[in-house]
Design a protein around this nucleic acid. Sequence first.
DNA 1: TTGTAGGCGTTATCAA
DNA 2: TTGATAACGCCTACAA
Lengths: 326, 326
Amino acid sequence: MVEKVTIATVARRAGVSRQTVSNVINTPDVVREETRERVREAITALGYRVNQAARQMRTGRSRLIAVRIEPARDGINGSVLDRFLHGLTDAAGLAGYRVMLYTAADDADEIATYDELLSAYDLDAFVLTSTHHGDPRTSWLAARDVPFVTFGRPWGAPETHSWVDVDNAAGTAAATEHLLALGHRRVGFLGWPSGSGVGDARREGWHRALGSWGPSAEATDGVDSGASAARAMLQREEAPTAIVCASDSLALGALQAARELGRDVAIVGFDDTAVAQAIGLTSVSQPLAEAATRCVDLLAELLDGRAPSTPTTVLLPPSLVVRKTA
Amino acid sequence: MVEKVTIATVARRAGVSRQTVSNVINTPDVVREETRERVREAITALGYRVNQAARQMRTGRSRLIAVRIEPARDGINGSVLDRFLHGLTDAAGLAGYRVMLYTAADDADEIATYDELLSAYDLDAFVLTSTHHGDPRTSWLAARDVPFVTFGRPWGAPETHSWVDVDNAAGTAAATEHLLALGHRRVGFLGWPSGSGVGDARREGWHRALGSWGPSAEATDGVDSGASAARAMLQREEAPTAIVCASDSLALGALQAARELGRDVAIVGFDDTAVAQAIGLTSVSQPLAEAATRCVDLLAELLDGRAPSTPTTVLLPPSLVVRKTA
DNA sequence: TTGTAGGCGTTATCAA
DNA sequence: TTGATAACGCCTACAA
């Protein structure tokens, strides 16, 4: 084991007090240039690094942010969170923060975890994903003045906190416009049952781009339910020649239905998951790495106390990845 | 902000000294039952929780373990790590540890990160994934007496540390036996170029179950390269009627090739990724949650100093998920 | 079995 | 501009 290098070691080597070393690290401009240089040399020569635990004891801040890792329920859509997490870890590292993971079975469980993480580890902030209507997590955190941002807007709630989200409606709108440009006129929509925020926005984008209501159907997320809903839609009169779907799972189902029926239907999915890449499904892609970076930016603002009085909101445009199915 | 509850608050409320409270927490058997109960009541009544930073200052241990989150390079295989991470976070939580994430561009970068995490956060241990031949990470950690386990055996290196791995050969062997039981006699193998440890083991399992060498081909991982390798294999004389693949990506490629050629070929993939689930691909599934749990078990052993003198190794059997393609 | 004293490495406060 | 001192919350050693 290497001899532990503390601020005292550095101070001795540079011939200054510990406090001066601390100042060089935290408030460099208050130290005379010459002294500062001497201390910096000592720091690099000794390979000194601030001990976070000790710093945390004094400052009450841990430079740790927490995010929940959800089980990949669907499998297909699981990798979305994965990519977001990677981006978050990268961006946080650049800003001098580390990411801690936790799991939770539901909202109540998650709130209990906040409580524990906060008192045991002095967590600096949280990043919440999968926001939804009536989300109890944000108000719990807000009531305790715990800094946080959400990836996903506060559905149905007042915008009292900063958030980052992807413009879901713009995504399906772009998909619809792409299909219209290809010459399709009867562009259908295969979405989730209404009430889910994200799902409603995706339907809304399709409707807006179409300028009217085309054929549409609802199905819970999944390949099989998507297939049967698509089958029904394709067997109606005035069946669509193209379908915009709320997810890659639904799109995959639609693809199966079209194939079974021997119909040539253009299909666009959402999320650009691995499945889409693998089978050549045209899909709407969320800028997850950028979303993660923006989350960290907002968090850093909050933590540095330089946050504007009104919460910042960031709406990122998705992009359409055109492949073989449309 | 709620008033901070420290060990002193608890001591005051229970009418004992701080030391007694500490004993109740860390060495309960040394405290008289009656006192212990009184202290415990105070702890729950006040909602007291040990402050990890302060504890860490004294003990030098952080109850934090770190694991690298890799970018989902392939997309298809990316979710494997995701599921492992989720299991790890769960298991670690149960054992009183938290998981910290980091990213790294390559082995050297990862080693630099170890150094930083160790001195700044006093990390207790690391979980390494994606072990490979000539892996410099394990020796770096071992040289510094840093506790770690690997998910993946030490390919080509002496077994000087504990590891958990999935029996890759058993997976492809089970796939091959399944195909033989279905009546196939010419069972081929589509794998990665030799030299990759995991890939070689998967080929070996196929060979072992077959009892001889059948038709085989090599391709770098990916749908397209898998498709062209499979196409070539299927166009040879004595073409296989079934193919065991080293990954779902390759399997997907093989599926495409078979369809193009109008051939009815049974296909089995590896990893049971989202793609396999979505398209009904029969695939070998790794018990990732269990692998994660075992990693935490081994780590806990190491950290509690109750590790056996020889490293423990755990080899988990994968299972075959039979779907439509075989 | 319980209590007292001291120190882990850092930074805030205040004095020089 | 720099330095001395105290304190963050906890645990180890030792004394009672």
